[in-house]
């Protein structure tokens, strides 16, 4: 009688597990009404140098961009209710050491005060997208901001935790280059994936990071810069991940799984046959 107990339990478990898996594949409920558009930037793994200072490098055209809609900054004064930059296409590559992120967006005019920024959460604490401003019920963390302005011709690596705390970091390890053509800015930011600085975002291939974007149209209107300071186009928090190197150990586990399953079948059939003979 013993083998039949083992057999029925094993069969039951097998059917249950298979059922759970199959039901997950075929019977899942429809997903909730989702937002359209991208949710994440993928830094593709490449060999050789990343196109650090070249917004028009050929490699960028081989990468499918993520696209994020932008909103006017209305969260705190001074607000703005209409902005020039309505959306941004983001592409990224890394080679295991360095990364480069290309922002492409429409801006009809090339102006000295045109600017773009990439913001990251730093460390494990969640930070508010508005410069890591104070949250009332949650202890927030720092944000790391990479800021590029046309007239500066370079990037500034900054940090903030709350309003009026935005400041350049001592370690200036981010580079940026912008190129404007036919109403489109292409700005490439680059930096080593890891820097060892506490206030810098550390990008580890395979892990998700939170990222947001901001843009200023520096056109002069009536003697004043159109968008500056808190008057800018912003995105919400989205995700960014550097693609991990391919992991071939997975196939070893797949083979192991197949061998174990076949062994289970063999054991089961032999057990039943022996039971029948006895």
């Amino acid at each position: 009688m013993g083998y039949k107990k083992i057999f029925s339990v094993a069969l039951g478990l097998t059917l249950m597990v298979t059922g759970v898996e199959v039901s997950g594949v075929f019977a899942s409920d429809p997903p909730p009404e989702g937002e359209t558009g991208s949710v994440a930037v993928r830094l593709f793994l490449t060999e050789g140098a990343v196109p650090a200072n070249d917004p028009n490098a050929a490699v960028w055209n081989t990468i499918e961009p993520a696209e994020f809609k932008l909103a006017p900054q209305v969260h705190w004064p001074d607000r703005i209710q209409e902005v020039t930059v309505k959306s941004v296409k983001v592409r990224g590559v890394h080679n295991g050491e360095d990364m480069a992120i290309l922002l492409e967006y429409a801006d009809p005019s090339e102006d000295a005060a045109d600017a773009a920024a990439v913001e990251f959460m730093v460390g494990d604490k969640m930070a508010h997208f508005a410069h890591g401003q104070e949250m009332l019920q949650v202890e927030g963390g720092d944000v790391n901001i990479w800021y590029w302005k046309k007239e500066h011709g370079k990037a500034t690596n900054m940090t903030a935790r709350g309003f009026k705390t935005l400041r350049p970091q001592e370690s200036q390890n981010v580079s940026a280059t912008g190129a404007w053509q036919d109403g489109t800015w292409r700005v490439v930011f680059s930096r080593p994936l890891r820097t060892g600085e506490d206030l810098d975002v550390q990008v580890t291939p395979g892990e998700w990071r939170n990222v947001a974007f901001a843009f200023w149209d520096g056109e002069i209107v009536d003697g004043d810069v159109k968008e500056k300071g808190s008057q800018k186009a912003i995105s919400s928090w989205w995700y960014l991940r550097a693609e991990p190197p391919p992991d071939n150990s997975i196939y070893g586990y797949v083979v192991l799984g197949i061998v174990l399953a076949a062994g289970f079948e063999f054991f089961l059939v032999r057990k039943i046959r022996r039971g029948n003979e006895s």
Partner: peptide, 10 residues
Amino acid sequence: FPLLVGWQTY
């Protein structure tokens, strides 16, 4: 069956 297990593992 073993192929299903392999696929699930993957």
